[in-house]
Computed example of a mutant assay.
Amino acid sequence: MARYGKEHKQATRQRIVEVAGRRFKRDGIDGSGIATLMADAGLTNGAFYAHFASKEELVATAVADQLRAQSASFGAQAPDRAGLEQLVRAYLSAEHRDNLEDGCPSAALLDEIGRCTDATRRAFTDGVLVVIDDIAARLAPDDPPSARAKALSVFAMMVGTLQLSRALADRRLADDVLEQGVHNALALLDAGPRR
């Protein structure tokens, strides 16, 4: 019975983390109260503190979880230049732009994460570096650290492009921003010596 209890508690905690990650990306961290998050998970407010000491702990956990999921999604692409191009095109697509809650945690939450606790910013940093290192490994399979700065620049450009496209009221202009972003990201990836 105790074993079931522990597994059930872990499954419940993971459900809270997953629904919180989606809600944070859709409504923002500050716009997502504990009552709403727990209702999303089908639980009462009181159950929250059986799993987390504070909302800040949940935020850090959810950010890390979202970045792990993004890394796994990136890792599902072919580990070569073609896979990298697919990744860029999928990231800078109208579908991704229009689907906040299933999209990139960086593009949805970057401004808020910058104002979060050190623990959340550390969780974000650790998670985003996994994503960056995956891109760097595709750029320079024999020496990924040599491509880390370029990978970080490409990712930053993609995140900013997606954020700008989401903010524009003119749909045609927003689509043009995405299209130019794909062109710019691919040009940056191809710039300099190939390794």
Rank of each mutant, 00 (worst) to 15 (best):
E56I: 04
G33Q: 12
V128F: 10
F155Q: 01
D65R: 08
A76Y: 12
E101L: 10
G5R: 10
A2W: 13
D190R: 08
H96Y: 11
C116Q: 04
V130P: 08
S71M: 14
A90C: 07
L178I: 00
Q70M: 15
R26L: 15
H8Q: 13
Q77N: 14
S73I: 09
R97L: 02
N45M: 12
S93K: 02
R195W: 15
D190A: 11
L110Q: 05
L87C: 11
A35K: 12
R121T: 06
A191G: 03
M38F: 04
D175V: 05
D80Y: 06
L84H: 03
A107T: 01
A82G: 10
R138N: 01
A156V: 06
D98T: 04
G31Y: 06
K6P: 11
R172L: 12
T117L: 09
Y91P: 01
D111S: 06
R3V: 14
A64D: 11
G42P: 05
D126S: 13
I16V: 07
G181V: 00
I16P: 03
A169Y: 07
G46Q: 03
H51Q: 02
S153Q: 09
K9W: 12
V154S: 01
D170N: 06
G160L: 04
R122T: 15
R26S: 14
I113T: 09
L37E: 02
G5C: 13
F155A: 02
L109V: 08
G21F: 03
N184W: 05
V17H: 04
V159W: 01
V17P: 02
I16T: 02
N45C: 10
A149V: 07
S165N: 01
A47S: 06
D80F: 14
E95M: 09
F74I: 05
R22W: 11
D65Y: 15
V130E: 09
E179F: 03
E101H: 06
R195H: 12
D142Y: 08
E56C: 01
S153F: 13
P193A: 10
I34K: 08
M157K: 01
V128H: 11
G28V: 11
A39C: 07
L67I: 10
A151R: 02
Q86F: 14
A64M: 13
D30L: 14
G31C: 06
K9P: 10
R97T: 00
R23G: 15
A94G: 14
H96C: 08
L129H: 14
G83D: 11
G83A: 07
L129W: 15
A169S: 09
R3G: 11
V59K: 00
A72K: 13
H51D: 06
A123I: 09
L100G: 01
A147H: 04
A94S: 15
D134V: 08
S146D: 15
R115C: 06
G75A: 10
Q77R: 14
S146T: 13
A169K: 07
D102Y: 10
D98F: 10
V59I: 02
H183D: 14
K25Q: 14
A78G: 13
G75Y: 02
E112F: 05
G127W: 12
Y4G: 14
L37D: 04
R115H: 10
F52W: 02
G114P: 03
L186Q: 00
A108R: 03
V63G: 05
K25W: 08
S71N: 15
M158H: 00
A78N: 06
A156F: 07
R26G: 12
G181E: 00
L37I: 04
A76K: 12
G114R: 04
I16L: 04
A108M: 11
R3A: 10
P193D: 11
G28E: 03
